[in-house]
Design a binder for these strands. Structure first.
Lengths: 248, 248
DNA sequence: GTTGCCACTTGATTTGGGTCAATTCGCGTT
DNA sequence: AACGCGAATTGACCCAAATCAAGTGGCAAC
């Protein structure tokens, strides 16, 4: 797909700080203009629920800045995170009336929304969009499957190490590509959100983070700021073969 | 999409016993012919590995008959099933050189394969295919997320009940739509495969099946033939709200 | 400065499911 | 009939993580 190298992350809108996936701003200008006409922005505060599972959803959207989570819940309150939305990620499903998950902002968040009906019509006419969306969805599916291995077969310690390496990797792509060994970042999630991500309790999350700290795998300043002195060590702790999967 | 109601399951080939998804046999005849020219069949015996994770994969395919599993493995041998392929399901990923999972036949299986390169080229030109593939992938993603809730938050008993209700549902769509209460089917998986599906050990699977039998939730003839006297009861055991999700 | 709140930590105890090991149940072979 | 073999069951024991409970630390509001 042309120009993908120039602005890799892109679905659509001209003046977003993030180039969204799917339409190349250089070669698909008319499509861009059309998307422009059906788009609007919405922002949410940290902690706010963006969408409740089952709600009618009349838009699809793309995260511009901030972080949100997709969660599913059993009647008795047990909840499992099933998706983590970071900037440039896509939310919502063309062809589906109602939301299948709760979407919650964990930080202040800005989303670039497109009215669903016109978006779908446009997708019918514009092969690029469906194709790009397919690539994105396949990536998400791979991530979900990697995550299933984590949920089904990893120990608590491995789960935590995996999550940390995922966050580190996501962060690293923006910030410091340089030093492979040492790495520093902020955890964008509370202990409870991490627990919901990993299928653990928040107490276990806390204990395992303490254990990793005690064993020198990570260093902590405050509760959220993490330094990993040796990424390789962390990846070994995560139990991942090779360079450690590609969740999220 | 036209004619979807007439032959709902369809990706492609004219003489498969199953109508595959994505191309309508009535209105897209030329596409059908083209797919016809790049397709071939492969069959595998029960237990055979279809593809090893990491292998070069020069085709995409659709399951005609039989059952296969997608699995991921940690170096130390812990394995997690991440997908269950039933007739009409799609395998392989356009745009990806090598396989990301092990694909194993659990019964004798027949697959309808399309050479990857020409299939991709065709997809570029044919919006319908990409759109249909997108729908299918989104469905798979939903299933994967439902499965994540199961892996992360359900008890062993709930996991077993969930799996049974999934198999029952899949089976029911083919066979008896009639009686909602009582339902009979064969388990297409060994205890070990069920364990890999559910993130349990095979001993736990066995114990929980025995427990469900003891409690009258299911009846067993032999090891594999299951009768559910009351589907509603089973769904309650599964912990699912509503009519029980849509895994697989 | 004190109060209250929330995120987090840590400890004590319990328990669901894993591990190890011994049978049993088919079922095809000789 | 006897054998072998893989699939499944069942039991005894153990341990990782859940549960229950108390306490700490930071920070915003008054």
């Amino acid at each position: 797909m042309a120009h993908d190298d120039v602005h890799p992350v892109s679905l659509a809108c001209g003046d977003c700080p993030i180039r969204h996936r799917a339409v190349c701003a250089r070669c698909e200008t008319d499509e861009l203009d059309e998307l422009e006409s059906i788009k609007y922005y919405r922002s949410f505060e940290a902690g706010q629920t963006v969408i409740w599972s089952g709600d009618k959803m009349d838009f699809v959207a793309s995260v511009v800045s901030g972080i949100a989570t997709l969660t599913q819940t059993l009647e008795d309150g047990r909840t499992q995170m099933v998706g983590l939305l970071l900037p440039s990620d896509f939310v919502g499903r063309p062809g589906r009336e109602s939301a299948a998950y709760n979407v919650t902002a964990t930080t202040d968040i800005l989303m670039c929304c497109f009215r669903r009906k016109p978006f779908e019509e446009m997708m019918e006419r514009t092969p690029h969009i469906a194709q790009r969306l397919l690539q994105m969805t396949l990536d998400e599916l791979d991530a979900a499957r990697e995550w299933m291995l984590l949920l089904g077969r990893k120990t608590a310690r491995e789960k935590i190490a995996s999550l940390l390496s995922i966050v580190a990797r996501r962060d690293a792509s923006i910030k410091l590509r340089t030093a492979t060994g040492r790495m520093t970042f902020d955890l964008p999630l509370t202990r409870e959100a991490m627990a919901d991500y990993l299928g653990l309790t928040l107490e276990t999350v806390s204990r395992q983070i303490s254990a990793l700290k005690r064993d020198g795998v990570i260093e902590l300043e405050g509760k959220r700021h993490v330094t990993v002195p040796d990424m390789d060590r962390l990846l070994i702790e995560a139990g991942d073969d090779s360079d450690g999967g590609f969740l999220v």
